[in-house]
Each structure stands twice: as C-alpha cells, then as structure tokens.
Design a protein around this nucleic acid. Structure first.
Lengths: 333, 333
DNA sequence: AATCAAATTGAAAACGTTTTCAATTTGATA
DNA sequence: TATCAAATTGAAAACGTTTTCAATTTGATT
C-alpha cells in the first residue's frame, strides 16, 4: 500500500470536510453548498485525486462495465456490431469487456460466469445459437442480457435483429424473378435456429409463392469461411444451380471467386446475393448484391436497449426488428 | 442488498470456519487441512457461492482485467491484433476492456484515464501515433503499458512490431527489380512516425540502393480507406507510376480496383504490393502481393509481454520485432 | 509428559468508495 | 427572538473480499 495514491480520505482531510461530502461533490449530488463544493474541487485538483472505480463499483453495486460476448472479433459482421455497441456504451459512460467465444458453448458458459463475477451491469450476446447450458445461465441471471444479431427461437430474451425470414424471401424472389429455376441456399450450420427456422424458412416461402418445387439438393450447409465458399463451385454446378442466396459475405466471396476462377461468369452464368452488406461487397469484383443489414445499428440499438434495461427504464418492445433492404450490385442482373 | 447473494460470510458460517479460511480455499492457498478444504468446498457447491471479483480486485489490488485501446475494431488489421491479445489474455486468466479510440488524441487520453480508474492491471495500446498528451499519461502511469503494432520513436515503451523499414525496403526493391522506374509510395498520414520515419525510410533506402532518384511526387498521403484508394488512380497515372507500395490492405484494394475499373491491367500495367496480408488479399482479384505481418502474433506477443511486466517477470527485450516476409500473389509479376 | 517447530486457523484491519440516517446549520416566518 | 422546515453535513456502517499477524493446533522428538 504505497501512500502515493490519493484517496477520498486525503481529500476530506485537506478540505476539512467528511468523506461523504467529497463523495457528494465527486458524484454531482446537489446537496452541497457552493462554497463547500468549490473548496473540495480545489483540493481534488491540487492533489490530482482520481476516484477508484473498483471501490465505487463495490460500494454502489454498479461497475459501469458491460460484457460483450462475440464469436470472433475478426469477423467483419461481428466487428461492425461491436463497433455500434462500443460507441453507444461510451456515450452512456460504460466500457465493454469483450470476450471471444468461438461459438463454443462451454466457453460461452465460462465467459458468462466470468463476466457475472466481474459484476458487469449488463451483457450483450452475439452468436448463432443459444445452447441449453447458456440459456440456463441466462435464466438464472439477474443481470440484463440483450441479444444482438442472434435470434431466440423461444422468444424469451430481448433482442435486436432484422427479419431474416422476410429478407431471405425477398432475395430469393429476386433471383427467381430473374428467371432462375435452380436457386441454391448456402448457409452455415442448419443446427442453428437462425439458419434453419428463419432464413431457410424465407427461402422456402419464396419458392412456394413462385410455385417452384423445393429441392433439398440445393441447400448447402457449411462453415462461414471464404475457403469453404471457394470449394463449393463443383457442388453448385453439379446440381445445376444458376443462382444462390448466401448467408455470409466472406463465404459469398469464396463462392463467387470459386465460380469466376473456374471460368464461369457472374452474373451471366451464376447470380449471387449475399447477406450482410459489409464493405467486402464493394471490394470484390464483381461487386456483390446483398441483403442490407444495418450492422452498426443492430449493435447500437442493442446497447441502447441494454442501457434501458439496466436503468429500469420503460421499454416498448424487447424484440426489435430493424429495417433491411436489398442492395443490387453487379453479382445479379 | 438482497440476501439472495451468497457471500463469503455465508460460506464461513455454514462450514463453521473463518472467512480467511474460505478465502484460502477459494484461492488455492496450501495452508488448509484437507478435511477443512473438503468441508468448505462442499458448502461452496451447496450454496453455489460465486466470489465477487470486484471485491477481490479492491482487496487484492489486482483486477485481472487489461485495457486494450484500439483505433477501430472494424479495421481488419487491428481486429486481428485484438484477437491475438484476447486469446493470450484468456489463457492467462485476464479479460480485456476494449475501447475504440479513433486515433483521436483527446479520446485516447480520456479512455486511458477511464481504464486507470478501473484499475486495469495493464494496457495494450494500438495506434499510429503517440501524442504528447498520451505520452505524458504513459509516463505517469504505474500500470504497465505495451504497444502493439505501434512504434515509439522515442523508444521508451515496450513494443511489438515488425521491422517496417526493412519490410518496405524489400517490397520496394521487389518492384524495382521488376523493372519499375516509377514506384509510388501510398501511405497514411506522414505526421505519423510509423509512416514518416520507418516505412518511408525503407522506401527511400530501396530507391537509393537501386540508384533511383527519389521523387516526392510519387509519395501519396491519404487516409486508410478503400474509398480514398479508389480515387487515387488518376493521380497515380499523372505521375507515370507503374507500381506502388501501399500501407494498408483496404487502401490497396481501393487503389487496385480504381485502376482495374479504369481499364488498366494489374500487374501488366501497374503492380501493387500491400502491407498487412489480411484475408482481403486473397479475396480480391487479382490476389494482392503483400508484406506479411503476423498480425495475430503481434497481438499475442504483446499480451504475453504485458503479462510478464504485470507479474514482474524478467523480460529479455522490451522491443520485440517479429519476422516479416513478402508474399507474392497476382498483383505483381 | 514436555518441548519445539511447523502447520493451520481466526479476528480484525485493510482496500476506497457509497449510503444511510442522525445531527447540525441555515433561512424564512411570525 | 423563537419556531420550523429545508438544506447541509458527518459518523459509521456497508459493500465482499484479502491480508496480516497472533493464537491455536498438530506432529515429532526427547
């Protein structure tokens, strides 16, 4: 305990007031006489007193930190959400404790517990799935939790998303309207509700409305990587697919480059609509058409929703659907 | 204060031991009889006691959190560093408080102070520059700080980088060896030491060694954005540049697409070497040649260096240079 | 059984701030 | 001047854990 640290006790003694008064000044409590306030502020400046936020957290039971669970911060989709979360967090004077989960359920439970131990005021959870173990931790938690870019098929949790079903339906319809009779659906794991129950559902609805028979050979399940996308060209060709709705931009870039590297032409031989409208859609050639998701806004709105929950503010709607669109670029006609 | 929270006092009472003994058990202190330890652990499990890490942080003066200051988490370069930092942090049982700084000096000072108030055990700083105000905060800090992907031209701070000078020299030499007589240097702000004193220096050294006259019209200063890169094609053409070393992958993708969209051919008409070897270099067409930086490793080694500093472990070398290379892809001959 | 050293345990202070409620001060009114 | 209500202030407890050092226990030896 080196006495170079200035504590509230030092300030109180120098200002000849109690610690309670110093605390009131520091925290902007109005019940302090102006002259007293000035005296204390002068001492604070002279001693360069910096309040210890950990002590404050213990005493006040608010740490002004929020936990953010992210599958992988290097993923362009999730990093955009994280940016929205952090910007709004800082606006409301919170800091984020960021943890990569790798969509590993065991790791998710572990980091959830660590964050709870660190008494975070709230948690934003990103991921493709909510395992039973994770859901159990959610249920026992007194700390507010908001999902961002993650659906809760049991609809128990506050969440911010787009209407993935409608968005994929519209994208699929667009490809069908272009005359494509063999539209593929390229997706991450169909174990994930977001893919199986929301996005694939939109795909099927578009087919049905267009009177196109559903063929499960046109549904491809893979991981969300560029490499996996590149390897899909032969399989897509073998089922005579002429277009695809693809669930991730890096995956889509892989599919597209696999196709063009094989000598086929996009969009003439094969049309592509991807899903996240990250900056990657503009960088590849041809530029990729995409469902537009306001990624930054999903993060920002999730964090704002969380600040309301943390502060017991009234919340109209715990399930927020943000607008989506369809941005046509050069990967479609 | 709702009594549903189980505290160390509850465990001590149930196990009929003192709080000190419970603390010893929880923290693995060997000075506990096996029978006592078992008794305590049984109670901990029965009551589902979860230690409060904030209280522990206050009492022990270690919070097991580290601050990470990042210019922009959506930037592919920095997010890869962040990934390395987090993985090693978790390995050593730390969590990262992540803050976006936008390379804004005022904001950097602000977040530094916030992190200090939150008693982080250490800080990893990423950015292109260390402003005087930031440096002053560094100097007064008793908390260890490590730079990652950020050079300290005053060489006061522990840091992890590659030899940017040698790397750019080699890339420039490569382009000169291809017969290019007009090699451009496309960079972020030359106010930043990393660009002015390290990378531009390498560029100049390569020219000098090749007996090529330095022409400042071939030096382009811009921001690190795809959009800025796209707009550079006319300027590059007007100085008859036939090749460029470019300081950021997104910027390089913009330059390259600007050139190919204008009808020129890469590498036949214009060769490009970029600097970060992110996955973007594989996604664009043609694939981009790049200086290879082990981004993940820069982050990982920085975090490891920080754990040593935090634990007062011996450190051989506070300035770590990791290996770089030159990956030739299709944007060069 | 007595002695001694090592191991174990406990009481209470420490960590630095916030909160609570009683005590005191202040200002307005009659 | 006395009274009263509102404002201000202070003392001490609270927050939940760790640490320190004295007290106690244990085990080995004579």
């Amino acid at each position: 305990m080196d006495k170079q640290t200035v504590t509230i006790y030092d300030v109180a003694r120098e200002a000849d007031v109690s610690m309670a008064t110093v605390s009131r000044v520091v925290n902007g409590n109005p019940n302090v006489k102006p002259a007293t306030r000035k005296k204390v502020l002068d001492v604070i400046e002279r001693l360069d007193y910096r309040p210890n936020a950990v002590a404050r957290g213990l005493a006040s039971k608010k740490t002004t930190t929020v936990g953010v669970i992210i599958p992988d911060v290097t993923n362009v989709y999730f990093s955009a959400l994280a940016r929205g979360i952090d910007d709004i967090a800082m606006m409301y004077k919170y800091n984020i404790i960021l943890t990569n989960s790798d969509e590993n359920g065991r790791k998710e439970v572990q980091v959830l517990n660590t964050l709870m131990a660190k008494q975070v005021d709230g948690i934003v959870f990103m991921g493709n799935d909510i395992s039973d173990e994770v859901r159990k931790e959610f249920e026992r938690s007194k700390t507010p939790i908001v999902l961002a870019g993650c659906v809760d098929d049991q609809d128990q949790m506050p969440s911010v998303n787009i209407d993935y079903t409608a968005a994929v339906e519209e994208a699929t319809k667009n490809l069908i309207d272009h005359g494509n009779e063999r539209v593929a659906f390229v997706s991450g794991s169909l174990d994930y509700p977001i893919n199986r129950d929301y996005r694939l559902k939109g795909y099927k609805q578009a087919l049905k409305k267009a009177g196109v028979r559903y063929d499960d050979k046109l549904v491809f399940e893979t991981d969300y990587s560029y490499k996996a996308g590149q390897l899909l060209q032969p399989a897509l060709q073998s089922v005579n697919a002429t277009a695809a709705v693809i669930g991730d931009d890096e995956l889509a870039a892989g599919v597209m480059n696999g196709i063009t590297d094989a000598g086929m032409s996009v969009p003439d031989d094969f049309e592509i609509i991807t899903s996240n409208d990250t900056k990657l859609t503009e960088m590849v050639r041809p530029k990729m058409s995409s469902i537009t998701q306001p990624l930054y806004d999903i993060g920002a709105v999730a964090m704002r929703l969380l600040t309301k929950l943390m502060n017991n503010e009234p919340v109209d709607n715990k399930t927020v659907l943000l607008p989506y669109g369809l941005m046509k670029r050069a990967s479609t006609h």
